[in-house]
Design a protein around this nucleic acid. Structure first.
Length: 590
RNA sequence: GGCGCCGUAGCUCAAUUGGUUAGAGUACUGGACUGUCGAUCCAGUGGUUGCGGGUUCGAGUCCCGUCGGCGUCGCCA
């Protein structure tokens, strides 16, 4: 080792010791007769003093060449700082290292991204990504990567203690047409054929259950070639697990325990178990979303039955057409949202596809007022006010449309208003489950049914008859873990009954030949003694994002990709040699 | 693919209604300084205003296109 100690570990107990440190020059303060260097490594920051008489004139002269991010090795004696010179902002602020020897290990060009930059001086994200090795030197990035390390380790330890075994599954698999777009890898040995990178280890983990490994877990990299978002990357990491001889409650209970453990360890939070659960239908009714943010209320209130009592054409027509009129009551919202502010909200919902935004203000006398109030009689206005619990200063925002659009609009409004009116503590963490998702969603144009989760998801036992009579009402043994309005994990119990499986396939329009072609290996395996099984996958990147209170998933990943799925540091993806293409029997057509 | 925001010195930003030679802080270079910790003080270097076109007497500013970054809708079983 070139060093005897790390920069962060020194304190008063080391006073008098001679130490050798290695690290990067975080900053330097040249004082003429001597100078001070803040030396940084992964463990912290310590002040190194190059002052007479401890430091020789030769070493002081050499120290004047130091610049930001130079890598040095320093030997010196740990000393208590002179009275009144301690720095309370530094954990090592009581002491300093009085240098006797300086060795320059490496120079640095002037860094375009400064690891010691204050938050408001943080360079643009494109620069940070291009020079990620500098960005990752920032204490904040180190905090996040270390948090990530502890979360993953905490998960691994937890499942190891619960008798799960870690099994690796292939990255080179077979493309299945369902779900997200695949990343493809061409095969050299089989010209014209392709592997697909896994969207998740779904099929393999089911095979492992059939193979008798009744508790499987893996930290698995997953790939989906879809457009990116602030919380979505093309490759991401899941804590994937599967269990045999279980029902939904068992899987949920297992994850409940994990949440409790990690919330305690990382957030100091005591979670009451079981975590709250809500059905999908209730979530959509009360919050308009399958992953509601339960840190605050602002629930949706249905006014569909009242709407036709008005003479307001929009309401009447929507209801007559089978649509819904629903609203949120923004308590004291008129202070935050003036007429101009409401115009802004109108533009906001129009951007989501809404035709407009109907609204009421509750006046001082408790009556509802609005540009549309003239279409409502006093009696009907009073009915609305009562239904909505309107009090002076409240702002009522409506969505009148089909069910899906009212959900989309009111969820977006609720999220926006909740954030803008600070209806919750940004430090708060809320864990809950949404359960019993629909089995199928119907394509509006074709009328075809599509699996909401995947085609192996089991329906609720009592809903099996609905597969024949009313698939849209059929609910699944599916469950999503929701943290602060973010989907932090999701899973299902799988079908292990061949008859139910073929029923689902036929509903999805997958005939026997197609099913055999796509996932024949799984269907075959299911015929050799498949245990009832189910599992879940947790989005590790999102867990880190939520536990670390970060706004972007890119800040939780050491080397993330941009919105266009490029790596600004390596400049991936890139072109390849003609020779490589020839070996793969590929021709580029652009 | 649609919509929106952004792009000015190495970095973070400013630049009035379209108007003189595009400024500031920081970094960098040189100098001064024996206790600083965002050190301080003096001086200096540093610009294809992302790129291309257009409008105009005149464009960092307005228009069109394009590239890049971000957000969002579609998409993400």
């Amino acid at each position: 080792m070139l060093r005897t100690h790390t920069c962060g570990e020194l304190d008063k107990t080391h006073v008098g010791d001679t130490v050798t440190l290695c690290g990067w020059v975080d900053s330097y303060r040249d004082h003429g007769g001597g100078l001070f260097v803040d030396l940084r490594d992964r463990y912290g920051l310590v002040q190194v003093a190059f002052n007479p008489p401890d430091t020789s004139p030769v070493e002081i002269e050499a120290s004047k060449q130091l610049r930001a991010e130079y890598v040095i090795k320093v030997t010196g004696r740990v000393a208590e700082r002179p009275p009144g010179k301690a720095n309370p902002n530094l954990t090592t602020g009581d002491i300093e290292v009085r240098a006797t020897q300086l060795e320059l290990l490496n120079k640095s060009k002037t860094p375009p991204v400064s690891p010691s930059a204050a938050k408001q001086d943080l360079p643009g994200e494109d620069l940070r990504l291009e020079h990620r090795y500098l960005d990752l030197r920032r204490p904040e990035m180190q905090r996040v990567l270390m948090l990530r390390d502890r979360i993953v380790k905490g998960m691994r330890d937890y499942f190891a203690e619960h008798d799960f075994i870690d099994v690796e599954t292939p990255c080179l698999g077979r493309s299945t047409p369902e779900g997200a777009r695949d990343y493809l890898v061409p095969s050299r040995v089989h010209p014209g054929n392709f592997y697909a990178l896994p969207q998740s280890p779904q099929l393999y983990k089911q095979i492992l259950m059939i193979a008798g490994y009744d508790r499987y877990v893996q930290v698995a990299r997953c790939f989906r070639d879809e457009d990116l978002r602030a919380d979505r990357q093309p490759e991401f990491t899941q804590l994937d697990l599967e269990m045999s001889f279980v029902d939904a409650d068992d899987v949920i209970g297992e994850i409940d325990g994990l949440c409790q453990k990690l919330a305690k360890e990382e957030l100091g939070l005591d979670l009451q178990l079981p975590l709250p659960r809500m059905t999908y239908d209730e979530a959509m009714r009360r919050f308009g979303h399958d992953a509601p943010d339960l840190r605050f209320g602002l629930e949706i209130i249905d006014c569909t039955d009242l709407a036709p009592k008005s003479d307001f054409g929009v309401f009447k027509n929507v209801v007559a057409g089978g649509g819904f009129v629903r609203a949120i009551n923004v308590k004291k919202g008129t202070e935050q949202y003036s007429r101009r502010g409401i115009d802004g909200l109108t533009e906001f919902v129009q951007g989501l596809g809404a035709k407009g935004l109907a609204w009421f203000r509750c006046e001082e006398d408790g009556k509802l007022g609005s540009t549309i109030a003239k279409f409502f009689s006093d009696e009907v206005l009073a009915e609305f006010a009562e239904r909505l619990g309107a009090e002076a200063g409240d702002l009522i925002l409506f969505s009148a449309a089909d069910w899906d659009m009212t959900c989309k609009v009111l969820h977006a409004l609720r999220t926006k208003v909740g954030r803008e009116m600070k209806l919750y503590d940004p430090q708060a963490m809320h864990f809950s489950w949404v359960v019993e998702f629909p089995m199928f969603a119907q394509d509006e144009e074709t009328g075809h049914w599509a699996a909401m989760h995947h085609p192996f998801t089991a329906p609720l036992d009592e809903h099996v008859p609905l597969l024949e009579t009313d698939p849209g009402k059929c609910r699944a043994k599916a469950y999503d873990l929701v943290i602060n309005g973010s989907e932090a994990g999701g899973g299902t119990i799988r079908i292990h009954d061949a008859a139910v499986q073929s029923q689902v396939f036929s509903l999805l329009g997958i005939d026997a030949a197609t099913a055999d072609d796509r996932f024949g290996f799984l269907l075959h395996a299911l015929q050799y003694g498949a245990p009832p099984h189910g599992g879940i996958a947790l989005g590790i990147d999102r867990w880190v994002m939520l536990f670390g209170r970060l706004d972007s998933i890119r800040d939780c990943i050491a080397f993330p990709k941009t919105q266009k799925a490029t790596d600004l540091m390596t400049e991936a993806p890139g072109e390849v040699d003609a020779r490589q293409l020839k070996e793969l029997s590929l021709k580029i057509n652009v």
